[in-house]
Design a protein around this nucleic acid. Structure first.
Lengths: 139, 139
DNA sequence: CGGAACTGGTTTGCGTCACGTACTACCTCG
DNA sequence: CGAGGTAGTACGTGACGCAAACCAGTTCCG
């Protein structure tokens, strides 16, 4: 008998939910030896190709943190560094074929895991949750 | 003019929302030199006093990870290790007064930051979001 | 043109965090 | 008592993350 849990505050609910999602992300990544940060890196590069600084902006990381992050991904053959044609200082980071393959595959698995979290909701509830989450995101 | 964003899938919405919340957590913690993990540690200890293994279970961490985590918190005077009266092997971890103070204070700041995320919602929407998140959590 | 100021990245050094393995001390059960 | 399981710790390794110093191209301006 699953006891009725005490009602959560909005804050507690969002915090706990975020941990659930993060854990799903971490587990999905672990299947391919990817950390959450690496997953985010691939996610950012999915539809664009960007410089280190720009990626760091998306991820909220310092540029000095980027070097190692990208280098590790590069060493695994997921990502490629190429010199910017317009700026001799800059570097463009993009997915390799292997990286793209892994990104698609990972996205699918993350989808499955996160969807499983909402398996207990009705379709209407899921839609509503998505709408509300979207409203928060586009604050 | 904030352009209408494209509609997000449920998965994308939850993932992005989780990152927003995690960032709020990280920022709130940073004000006191606490990492997200340390915050969680304090959170677990807020209403109970537990052994290393039990805490590790709540946090999803290996017992070997716990030693360092608790030791660092102990070094900052936030947490105390005491021998279990019933089991010579075990150790009981509990908050110090300083740790409790910081926990309360941090909880309040986290509350503010997370609440700020939902500032754009109506009260009814916030209630509904909380209900749906709760349903996922007790899924 | 030529130097000053700026900018994108890397390097280095330090601390946090997480894991696996190995080891100690302490139960518990037969 | 001895075998086996359990709670924690120690140690080495690796991913992260930041700050500060540094380099090489860029841009700005006189």
């Amino acid at each position: 008998m699953t006891a009725d849990e005490p009602p959560l505050s909005t804050v507690d609910a969002l915090v706990q939910l975020s941990f659930l999602v993060q854990r799903a992300l971490a587990e999905a990544g672990a299947e391919h030896g990817l950390s959450v940060v690496q997953i985010r890196l691939l996610g950012v590069l999915r539809d664009r190709t960007a410089g280190m600084l720009e990626i760091g902006g998306h991820l909220g990381l310092d540029k000095s943190s980027m070097t190692g992050l990208v280098s590790r991904a590069e060493k695994r053959g997921l990502v490629r560094r190429s010199p910017s044609p317009h700026d001799g200082r800059a570097v463009l980071v993009s997915l390799t074929d292997e990286g793209r393959r892994l990104t698609e595959q990972g996205a699918e698995q993350i989808g499955r895991r996160v969807a499983a979290l909402t398996a207990g909701l009705t379709e209407a509830q899921r839609t509503e949750l998505t709408r509300l989450a979207g409203a928060v995101i586009n604050g």
